[in-house]
Amino acid sequence: MTLQAFGPQIWIADGPVLTAAAGFRYPTRMAVIRLAKGGLFVWSPTALSPDLRAGIDALGPVEHIVAPNSLHDTFLTPWRDAYPDARLYAPPGLRARRPDLAFDADLADEAAEAWTGQIDQVQMRGAWITTEVVFFHRASRTAIFTDLIQHFSPGWFSGWRGLIARLDLMTGPAPAVPRKFRAAFTDRRAARAALRRIRAWPVEQVLMAHGAPVTSDGRQFIARAFDWLEPA
């Protein structure tokens, strides 16, 4: 696992494939943003291999470790152990799921003081599965989604899992919000309010935890991905 530059002061790294409920296999991806004062903001950390750690340490000190939703917590403990001076941030719902972790702060609907003016954020409220915090890195004009938008190749899942993935829009012709997440948004008004903030960002690139990055026309991409949420 090695870091790859994704724009000014932002890097990404792909991690191991994890097996989730019912045997569905998911690749993992993380992002690292270097803030103005040199400290690092680590989004959705994946497995901390020696090579990855060496690359991270070469960029600067890890100051902020962020779990973007309550489903992305697998590797938080080793990162907490490796970087005990970093602040660990919990998204809505994760403190209750992980009482073993000592979180330093909660991710709110506005940027924390440490990254105000550099990284914007909004809670995508209204879904019962999880409340995902979506980020926007201003310097690279990158929107960062976790599970809300996904895209797998048609052959990634096989057998009955392949059928379910296709019906769920996980393996369609383009990245999409899976049908299970669409159905989970029982409070569409809250979701639309969050989406309006996201669509106001001058996005050019889009990162997803489970799908190839989008490197151009990010605003149009987000509009297409969430056209099902717009009021009739």
Score class of each variant (00 low, 15 high):
residue 59 L to M: 14
residue 149 I to H: 10
residue 60 G to L: 10
residue 129 I to E: 05
residue 127 A to P: 02
residue 132 E to A: 03
residue 129 I to M: 13
residue 128 W to P: 00
residue 145 F to E: 11
residue 154 P to K: 06
residue 64 H to W: 14
residue 119 I to F: 15
residue 147 D to K: 09
residue 140 S to A: 14
residue 78 P to D: 13
residue 77 T to C: 00
residue 128 W to V: 14
residue 125 R to L: 13
residue 144 I to M: 15
residue 152 F to K: 10
residue 157 F to H: 10
residue 67 A to S: 14
residue 141 R to V: 04
residue 110 E to Q: 15
residue 98 R to D: 03
residue 93 G to S: 10
residue 143 A to F: 02
residue 55 G to I: 01
residue 141 R to H: 10
residue 148 L to I: 09
residue 133 V to L: 12
residue 92 P to I: 03
residue 155 G to R: 13
residue 76 L to T: 05
residue 88 L to T: 01
residue 153 S to M: 04
residue 125 R to I: 03
residue 144 I to Q: 06
residue 127 A to S: 14
residue 157 F to N: 10
residue 103 F to T: 02
residue 82 A to D: 08
residue 147 D to L: 07
residue 125 R to M: 08
residue 136 F to I: 02
residue 96 A to W: 03
residue 137 H to M: 08
residue 109 D to S: 07
residue 68 P to T: 05
residue 124 M to W: 09
residue 150 Q to T: 13
residue 147 D to R: 12
residue 54 A to E: 12
residue 143 A to Y: 01
residue 120 D to M: 08
residue 101 L to E: 00
residue 88 L to D: 03
residue 75 F to E: 14
residue 102 A to Y: 00
residue 113 E to P: 08
residue 93 G to D: 09
residue 103 F to M: 07
residue 155 G to T: 04
residue 62 V to L: 09
residue 141 R to N: 05
residue 107 L to S: 05
residue 143 A to P: 00
residue 69 N to A: 06
residue 129 I to L: 14
residue 154 P to V: 09
residue 81 D to I: 04
residue 101 L to R: 00
residue 109 D to C: 09
residue 133 V to I: 15
residue 130 T to K: 08
residue 68 P to A: 13
residue 83 Y to A: 06
residue 122 V to C: 10
residue 109 D to G: 14
residue 143 A to V: 13
residue 107 L to T: 03
residue 116 T to V: 15
residue 80 R to H: 11
residue 117 G to C: 13
residue 100 D to P: 00
residue 121 Q to W: 09
residue 154 P to I: 06
residue 54 A to I: 07
residue 92 P to R: 09
residue 100 D to N: 02
residue 101 L to Y: 00
residue 95 R to L: 06
residue 75 F to I: 11
residue 130 T to S: 15
residue 124 M to T: 02
residue 136 F to H: 11
residue 125 R to G: 04
residue 149 I to R: 07
residue 103 F to P: 02
residue 86 A to Y: 00
residue 151 H to P: 06
residue 52 L to G: 01
residue 114 A to T: 15
residue 132 E to D: 01
residue 66 V to E: 06
residue 133 V to Q: 13
residue 77 T to S: 03
residue 140 S to I: 01
residue 58 A to W: 09
residue 122 V to P: 12
residue 112 A to R: 11
residue 55 G to Q: 14
residue 124 M to N: 03
residue 79 W to M: 04
residue 139 A to V: 07
residue 69 N to Y: 08
residue 68 P to W: 00
residue 115 W to K: 10
residue 157 F to G: 13
residue 81 D to L: 07
residue 66 V to H: 03
residue 135 F to A: 09
residue 98 R to Q: 11
residue 142 T to R: 00
